[in-house]
Amino acid sequence: MLLLITGGSGSGKSEYAEKMVLRLQKMPRLYIATMYPFDEECRLRIRRHRKMRAEKGFKTLECYTGLKNADVTGYGTVLLECMSNLTANELYQEGGAKERCAEEILAGVHRLLGQCEHLLIVTNEIFSDGVDYDPETRIYQKYLSEINRQIASMADAVVEVVYSVPLVHKGNPEEMV
């Protein structure tokens, strides 16, 4: 099954996603990490997330670009976090898919779905603060929103987390458990 989890930054999305993974009880568990350790702030964030996953029995696969090359065959539950990083990596990193980022990422999502039992994807709401960003950032918003919409249409359930409170927009995540 596919569960899409979205929300603002600092809204408790990761914590909700990890709780769901534990409740699913489908072993083994894989975490696909997408945050490229650019600087100390990223490394701090990565450490915070690693700590949250400690002792939860996750293996970690680092994937900054090229999601469709990831092999997750045999995993019971795969948690991909997060789509906003992966999209930015594909768009801005050397060797990234650039303007083909949405189709490349979606091809990757399809492939993962065929390989594991449960796929949970965390993404990010970056679309509603009323700031007019530069054209490059607007393109990033456009690609990410397209990816979010496509995944949501495929997903069995879509949840938005608001300050730790899950709001269900599609399906019933409880049915996955």
């Binding site: 929300g7 603002g8 930054s9 600092g10 809204s11 709401e125 970056i126 679309f127 509603s128 603060d129 009323g130 700031v131 960003y133 950032t137 990033y140 918003q141 608001v162 300050y163």
Partner: peptide, 8 residues
């Protein structure tokens, strides 16, 4: 206010 719904 609910913050965090924009680009970083």
């Amino acid at each position: 206010n609910e913050l965090g719904y924009g680009v970083v």
